[in-house]
Design a protein around this nucleic acid. Structure first.
Length: 552
RNA sequence: UGCCUGAUAGUAUAAAGGUAGUACGACGGUUUUUGGUACCGUUUGUCUAGGUUCGAAUCCUGGUCGGGCAACCA
């Protein structure tokens, strides 16, 4: 590791461990999602961290589903999570499930009971909460805390056997009811839930809690570095307590600050609400911060990985500006997206001195960022073109490098034209722009000697195809919707989606490929939507181009 | 007001007692058949008050502010 780049705190920990000979230099991490929703960009940070750490130090990463709460979990989510991790470009060493360990976990619990370190409690959840005390006052033990080992063993076996209804009893760890860490005040290990599990079916009616499953699963897999987010800091004491009492592999937990992105929300609960209450089309709506949403929007795996690399890792709360995400996708697409022409808000241009009915094929390269342009395509040109309405002004200001009566522009890959006049309808809307072209100014063979400041895109009227184009804006009107007064949904941006039904695109775009990014010149990056068909092409705008032109 | 955590430009993130740097953003310029890209430049920062030291973002003490913790969620 002789790079100039400094290490983040997790890399420092791993390097120190390797240097100290811990675990014989072995590095095994894990990415442990609960399959209760779709993965979002915050998970991408965790994925990049866990897989990246292992990759960098010659280790491996397990994909482990934390499926200990059957009430919320579904196979649909398992499948989507696997797809997203793969799509991001990572390969896990083993696909595992906390539910794989239910038998072992049960034995671990029995071990603790036998050591006098766990007991069955018949209290209701309200009673237990009441007996926990407060942060400033210690909890108080109840009569169940002193049950005999034999009785606990029998009761726990009966719980497993299904003799009790949901909520009748729980298994608790006997730690310390006076601990300043509330999590140590005899935390629950098992609860009764007569619920069908997506993998174990109806085999179990008791399920382990997170705190009694996570560290134990890490230990079973012999995870060396268990990386999670900051809200689990106070769980670390418990994590270590179970491992110590059980005398199992000593995995270590390390915490980092989760990702927050402005103008969106990042909790599965809130994202689920947006989906269920139809504020968006689904988990993969292009406005969602989910991996599947970003994918449908046109983000590439490389751009997301780059983003995760650039935001860094630390332990302080943060709020990342979406502009960095946008920078990452533009940087990627600028180098890879093929250039095409599309007119989003069309107005007709008539070239009065070009033979009516004549068609000419012009060449335009696919990608100016690459040597040789990656080939190109033929662009049909004729006397009637669609151009962008905003590229013409009746009364152009001084630095307007586009069209207005008397002004000249280059039609990209074609000719220079001069605007002579325009036509208005009864309401005063401009309906047609009349120009004359300069035959000697043909692209790549320009002998006119004329130089113009502006170049605009266009599509030939008789050759144009049409498409639907969806333009997206931020989902929320405020930077941190979760931190505003009232419900976060009050801050939804009502105009986060604009659908353009009549966009004219150059004919070659009819062969657009799903999953590929295209730059609609001067307009942004676009990609085919999953709803697109050959009869009705649908494009999503991934991101606009950076716009240096500020209208004054 | 118990415990745990954290605090460096607008936003992130480096500097491990020795020149506060980098990226994104913003602003300005050069080039350009995309007002894109590329290139160049400018701008703004160590929460606070003391202390230790030749020297402190870094170590010590007090304060301030932020986040987390009292789910049969993870």
């Amino acid at each position: 590791m002789s790079e100039e780049k400094s290490l983040n705190f997790l890399e420092e920990i791993v390097e120190a461990d390797i240097a100290a000979g811990k675990n014989s230099g072995r590095v095994l991490t894990r990415f442990p999602p609960e399959p209760n929703g779709y993965l979002h960009i915050g998970h991408a940070k965790s994925i990049c961290l866990n897989f990246g750490l292992a990759q960098r130090y010659g280790g491996q990463t397990n994909l482990r589903f934390d499926d200990t709460n059957p009430a919320k979990e579904e196979v649909e989510y398992v499948d989507s999570i696997k797809e997203d991790v793969k799509w991001l470009g990572f390969n896990w060493a083993n696909e595992l499930y906390a539910s794989d360990y239910f038998d072992t976990l049960y034995e671990f619990a029995v071990t603790l009971i036998k050591k006098g370190l766990a007991y069955v409690d018949d209290s209701t959840s309200e009673e237990i909460a009441g007996q926990k005390g407060t942060p400033t006052e210690p909890g108080t033990p109840n009569q169940y805390r002193s049950r005999s080992i034999e009785e606990n063993l029998q009761l726990f076996a009966d719980m497993k056997a299904g003799k009790y209804p949901d909520g009748a009893k729980v298994l608790r760890a006997k730690v310390d009811l006076a601990s300043p860490n509330m999590l140590l005040r005899d935390p629950l290990m098992y609860r009764i839930k007569h619920t069908h599990h997506h993998r174990t079916g109806d085999t179990w009616c008791i399920y382990p809690m997170y705190d009694f499953a996570h560290g134990e699963s890490d230990a079973i897999e012999e995870i060396t570095h268990s990386v999670c987010t900051l809200e689990f800091v106070s769980h670390r004491d418990l994590y270590n307590w179970f491992i110590e009492k059980l005398e199992i592999f000593p995995s270590k937990q390390y915490e980092f600050a989760r990702l927050n992105l402005n103008y969106t929300v990042m909790s599965k609960r809130k994202l689920l609400q947006l989906v269920e209450e139809k504020y968006v089309e689904g988990w993969d709506d292009p406005r969602m911060p989910t991996i599947s949403g970003l994918r449908r929007r046109g983000y590439t795996p490389a751009s997301i990985r780059e983003f995760c690399e650039r935001i860094g890792v630390a332990k302080r709360e943060n709020m990342i500006d979406v502009s960095l995400l946008e920078f990452c996708i533009r940087e990627d697409l600028n180098k890879t997206a093929w250039r095409r022409m599309a007119v989003l808000d069309p107005i007709k241009m008539v070239i009065t001195n070009y033979p009516e009915g004549q068609t000419e094929l012009l060449f335009s390269e696919n990608n100016p960022e690459v040597e040789g342009g990656e080939g190109g395509r033929e662009l049909p040109f004729s006397s009637e073109l669609w151009i962008e309405r905003e590229d013409f002004m009746e009364e152009p200001p001084k630095k307007f490098f586009r069209l207005g009566v008397g002004l000249m522009v280059r039609l990209k890959s074609a000719y220079i034209v001069k605007c002579d006049s325009f036509v208005k309808d009864a309401e005063g809307n401009v309906t047609e722009i009349h120009c004359t072209y300069i035959p000697e100014s043909k692209s790549q063979n320009d002998t006119s000697g004329i130089h113009v400041k502006g170049t605009i895109h266009w599509v030939s009227v008789p050759h144009a195809k049409t498409a639907e184009v969806r333009l997206y804006d931020r989902l929320f009107k405020v930077e941190d919707p979760s931190n505003e007064d009232g419900d976060f949904k009050e801050y939804i941006n009502a105009s986060s989606l604009h659908i353009l039904n009549n966009v004219y695109i150059e004919p070659d775009l009819a062969t657009a490929v799903p999953g590929k990014g295209y730059q609609f010149m001067r307009k942004g990056y676009f990609t085919l939507d999953k709803n697109s068909t050959t009869d009705k092409l649908v494009f999503n705008r991934t991101v606009t181009l950076k716009d240096g032109w500020v209208k004054k």
